[in-house]
Every structure is written in C-alpha cells, then in structure tokens.
Write a protein that binds this DNA or RNA. Structure first.
Lengths: 246, 246
DNA sequence: TTTATTGGTATTATTATTAGCCCAATAGAC
DNA sequence: GTCTATTGGGCTAATAATAATACCAATAAA
C-alpha cells in the first residue's frame, strides 16, 4: 500500500492556547497597552491549567506580542508591533508571492460576501455596520489626540469588526469563518499599510454600507473588490518604492 | 474584563486520527471493500502508537465506516455506506438549511476556482484533468460489469479528484484547501444523489475541461456554477419528492 | 501441521496536564 | 512606614493520555 496518509500532529494543549491568543491579538480584540485578564482568570476562561496557560504565554512573550509584569498593577500587557519601515518592506517583498495568493482568495471571498450581504442584511446588521463606520470616522477625525500607533491599532480592530459584520450580514457562516481566518493569518499585514490610506479606506466603508443598505448587490461587490485590491495595490507600491528609499 | 475568549478544546490524539481517517474515507481515497494498511503500518504512517490508532479505529467502526477482521487475510476493511432511501431523504431534509449554506459557499469557491483555472492551467493540469474525465467516462460506460455501489464509489472518488485538480490548476492553494474541506464535510452527501445524475454530471465535466483548455474563464465559471447548483437542485428534488414516495 | 500474517489484549514506562500551595514583587490604603 | 490585596513566578504531587513492548488468538495458505 502506498504512503497515503500524512502523520498526525497531536497539538499540545499549550500550542492550541498560543494559537487562540495569537488570533485574538491579530484580530485586535486586545489593543496594545491593554492588559489581558489575570492568569488565573484566563486559565478559567480557556479551561486549561495555569501551568499550561503560562507555557503559552512564554511563547507569545518570546514573539514580542505580550509582556508580563508582577505586582498589584502588573498583568499581561499587550505590546505594540515593532517593525521598522525597512524591516517591514523587507518582510513584504519576501512574502509577496504568498500575499498575492492570499489577496486573490480574500478578494473572492469578500466580494461574494458583500454581494450576499446586500441581499440578506437585516436592520440589526445595518445598525451594527453604521456604528462601526461611525467609530472609524471618529477615530480618523480625532487622530491627533492620541498615540498614533494606538489610533492605527483601534482603526484596524474596527476594520476587522466591519468585515466580520458583513460576514454576519451575508447569513453564511462559512463565509464569516473564512473572513476571520484570512484576517487572523499571520502574514496578512493589512495593518501597517494603513497609515498611508486611512481616509480612502474609510470612504470605501461608507460607500459599501450605503450599497448594502440600498440592497445593491453588484455595487456592493464592486466596491468590496476595489477595496480589497486597493489594499494589495498599496502594498505593491510600498514594496516597489521601498528599496530605493531605505 | 468581559468573557472574550472561548475555551480551547485540547483534541485528543485519537480524535485527530479519527478526523484524518474519516476525511480520507470521505474523499474516496479508500474504496468500499478495500483494506487499509495493517494497524502496525498505519500507526507508523500516522506516527502514533498502535494503542492510539486502535482507539480511533473503534470510533470509525462504531460509525460503520470500517470493520476489523483477524487472521492472515484479515485487516481493516472499508464498508460501503448503508442508508436506505427513506433514511437518506430524512437525513437530507433535516439538514436542508445547512446544505443550502454549504452549497452557497461551494458555489462561490468552485466557480471562482474554475475561472482562475481557465487562465492559469498548465499542460500538466490539462493532462491530469483529461485522464480523470476519461476514467469517469469508462466507469459510466462499464457500469453494468461491476457492483453498482462500487462503481458509484469509484465515480465519486474520481469526481473529488477532478475538482481537486481544478483547484491545483487555479494555482491558489487556499482555494484548493477550501475545495477539499468542503468535500470532506461530513454532511455533504454529494454521493448518494449521483445514481440519478451520472451521465449529465459527466457531460458537465467534459465541457468544463474544454472551457479550461480553451482558456475561457467566464464559460468555465458558468459551467461550474450550473454543475454545483445542479447537484443542489437534484437534492432539493429528492427531498421534495421523497416524503410522498416513502 | 507448520508458518506467516493479522487483529486483540495486557503491562509498564513516559509524558503532558492538572491542582494546589506558597513565594516575590508591586502599589495603594491605613 | 506598615499592612494588605493583587499580581506573576515557581514548585511539587497526582492524574490522565500516550507510547512501547510483549504476547495471545484467529485465519488461511504452504
């Protein structure tokens, strides 16, 4: 008999915890500077022992995503991403092939989702989407008031929420899941290009919401297509212009 | 802090093995009547202990997918599916809501994949696809010679291969993965409706191959769309007509 | 009858995970 | 300044899952 079956890799519990927490961090469910729940509470929520949780935390600490501090005001603090412009461009150009494939996939998924959402959206969906768009608008408007890195992080978290909400509005859980998976992909640096394209991206969101509210599937699909591929174009531009600069 | 994180479920090793083997069986990598490799060899391939493997085998035996026999000519024998027509219709109508969502998703994924494949296919891809179509043609032609249930199983395995090959031809691994995941979904009974629609489905495959060979993306997409939704329509018909019959 | 091949079973490590306890640091309350 | 509450850090013993190994039982062909 041929060698038909791949070895199974029995994931250690702490590895699963790492993936779980990393996903939450990448989706912006915890912002830089914020603290995660105390270890004892986290262990309860995740239903693992504190030992196992701590093993996972050491991994994430090694990756620079979190940092632990002892004491009454201590805790598990989320760190902000830390790549220099040069490192980031380097990272992007090395991953360009994978990124193109990921964005091709993302474009397919999210375009179809937007189209469906325009048909199936409920009033509740529209309320959610409006609230998120307003939140992003406020963020962009008040940009100078806060730490810029934190504003970007908040904007990205809201952006993730927005796309997730469109997934919900589509009514198809497979699409929702796919959107979240793409977003949580370790190599999807939607984030760091946003300093360049905040206003435009936010306009796109407002247009998209309108198309969904007006139940115009084709228009919603077109806007989403341009939105996603606009991000990819921005990445390409960055990579093309980067090497000369730095 | 709000209850933001879901409990992790540390999958037992034997559970992962179950999923692995079940997926292989659902994808038709082992046909009914065939034997899996001996336990000791399987354990080696999967890189788990024989104890763990056997635990997994007991689960699959419980599900009626395999059966173990001792002795020199014994082994782990793959069983054929065993639902009666009535049970099957019952199963389908209970799952109709999930099925609609799954097919909606499948339609999106596979239509986009066919479109890309028509552009990106290599000569090697075309050879693969031709070989599979021919194999299916031969199966349909020689239908009376063999056990009909086995012919259906072989046809389904080839069908899975065909769709997977289009995924490969698209050049996008995310789409390939999605296609395989959908196919392996426990509740996708592509299988049992095929006794009704063999010839038509096979014609669709030939047309699709032609469109991909001629590099006509829109045509390939249209054919795939009709192909997938034709299957769903067949399921709907079955469910609609079933209750009166049985 | 022998022998090779297979699944079935039992025993004993080894390892991962849990549960529980106490220590060390930190900052606010008194 | 001294408590006190809260946090992460570290240790140990118990438990459960998994692996490793050996041997038994059935089967059929040589």
């Amino acid at each position: 008999m041929n060698q038909v079956l791949d070895p199974v890799q029995a994931n250690a519990a702490y590895e699963i915890v790492v993936e779980n927490l990393r996903r939450a961090l990448l989706l912006g469910r915890f912002l830089p500077g914020e603290k995660l729940p105390p270890e004892r509470e986290l262990a309860l929520q995740l239903q693992v022992s504190r030992t196992t949780l701590r093993e996972a935390l050491r991994v994430l600490e090694g990756e620079g995503l979190i940092q632990s501090k002892r004491g009454a005001t201590g805790g598990i603090v989320v760190q902000s991403p830390h790549m220099s412009h040069h490192e980031f461009v380097e990272f992007l150009s090395r991953r360009m092939h994978d990124l193109k494939q990921l964005y091709e996939y993302r474009s397919i998924i999210e375009t179809a989702t937007a189209r469906l959402a325009a048909t199936n959206r409920s009033e509740r969906d529209l309320e959610n989407l409006s609230a998120i768009v307003e939140k992003m608008h406020a963020l962009v408007a008040g940009e100078t008031l806060d730490d810029p890195a934190l504003v970007v992080a908040k904007f990205l978290a809201a952006d993730a929420e927005f796309h997730a909400a469109i997934g919900t509005a589509s009514g198809n859980p497979h699409l929702s899941q796919a959107i979240e998976d793409i977003r949580a992909s370790k190599f999807l640096p939607i984030g760091a290009v946003f300093s360049k394209m905040d206003p435009k991206a936010n306009e796109g969101h407002a247009e998209l919401l309108k198309a969904i509210r007006d139940q115009k599937p084709d228009l919603a699909a077109t806007i989403m297509y341009n939105h996603v591929n606009g991000t990819l174009a921005a990445i390409r531009e960055l990579v093309a212009s980067g090497p000369q600069k730095g």
